[in-house]
Design a protein around this nucleic acid. Structure first.
Lengths: 212, 212
DNA sequence: TGTGAAATGGATAGTCAAGTCCAAAAGCTT
DNA sequence: AAGCTTTTGGACTTGACTATCCATTTCACA
């Protein structure tokens, strides 16, 4: 499920062309994160990226195609970062450290904005089937990274083998997404902290030894 | 925090006027749930409600005001339903029954649409401050209903007094919202079930007696 | 039953976004 | 350096949406 779900008909792109394309995607990603997809106009992207209208439509068939590129961009940014963080999971202490990083990041943003993937999914899931599929895949990769971390904890004897890493990873990602959603609405990270803490305490039920 | 957050300047409304207003809100709520707020045009609402354009602007100052009315409408529908369901919480068995109702409802919808309040929050939180405040209040009332149920379980000796109903209720609502978000993207209720199950198992840590 | 307020119908102004088009510049290839 | 492809600029078409306006009908109430 990690195959390329949006096989854009790859035209030949010069180095300069690649740079322009990426500038457009970055600007669009930033604006769409802030204002939503529907709230982001192509003229706004054009100005933010410092390009002309024709360039947007030279590199993307339409706004939907650009949106798919934004999804791929955000997926890579988030899943890569998360995979690195979660790649170090080898103890309950490390799991709590991951929780602290996530919570601190949200606090630093004053709970503004939520999760880019969560927002995109909420806005696009019923509107753009290919976007929904791409985001489903993004979430699968993300929960897969969590699952691998939990599996590692089992392999190292931190958690007992009766833990179900797959199910727990889905639950953890759901807690994270829901926590971010509530934190955004309430401008307060309490719900995010409660959700992640509860999920960690759930995982601790499988701990071989209490504590770290 | 349950005060009226959207004190629309109440004009005199005849019975007929109230009915028309409600027809508009209902139609708008349905369309906004399906297509999002930005994706719902006033002409579409006009046609769905069977009214003329002037009627929409007779009863609402602008689309934002109508959107606030939709938020109030969905809040009442959801929080009322949930409060009734959660009002029966008096055992772990009842908690699991609540979980089953929520999961079954999502399955019946084939995981299409997510939570109306969650979708509205994701779309509007950064765009319409008064909408964000109203939705924050909606979520507080919802988690409050969960908290009351958990408190009742403590009072009845089902859960020990070391359980923190407030924090657990925030975590449970986050798990629900995140589970719905992932279920919508993946068209599969597995994440919702995993999240709710994990949260119930977390709560069971405080059970006085195992089982029911 | 008459009068003013409320409700309704429908046309329309004003704005803005998506996407197209074509000419011109820049860049690669040989 | 010629010739072809890629890239770029920017005007423009088309269409849709928000909101307004005003004439007309319906209704409440005295």
């Amino acid at each position: 499920m990690v195959t390329d779900l949006t096989p854009e008909p790859a035209q030949p792109l010069t180095t300069k062309g690649q740079a322009t394309r990426e500038r457009i995607v970055r600007a669009a990603a930033e604006l769409m994160f802030r204002d939503g997809v529907a709230g982001t106009s192509t003229p706004a992207i054009r100005d933010a990226a410092g390009v002309s209208s024709s360039q947007i439509y030279h590199y993307f068939a339409d706004k939907e195609a650009l949106t798919r590129a934004v999804i791929a961009h955000q997926t890579q940014a988030i899943v890569d970062t998360q995979s690195e963080l979660l790649g170090r999971l080898d103890s309950l202490t490390a799991l709590r450290a991951w929780r602290d990083v996530v919570v601190q990041a949200e606090r630093d943003l004053h709970c503004v904005g939520g999760c880019p993937l969560g927002s995109l999914s909420s806005e696009l899931a019923e509107h753009d089937p290919s976007a929904r599929l791409a985001l489903a895949d993004s979430f699968s990769r993300w929960s897969g990274a969590i699952r691998d971390g939990l599996q590692r904890m089992i392999d190292r004897g931190v958690l007992r083998a009766d833990a179900d890493p797959h199910k727990l990873s889905l639950a953890m990602l759901a807690a994270l997404q829901g926590g971010l959603l509530l934190a955004q609405a309430q401008r307060n990270s309490a719900a995010l902290e409660a959700a992640l803490d509860a999920m960690i305490e759930r995982i601790e039920q499988h701990a071989v030894a209490p504590g770290g």
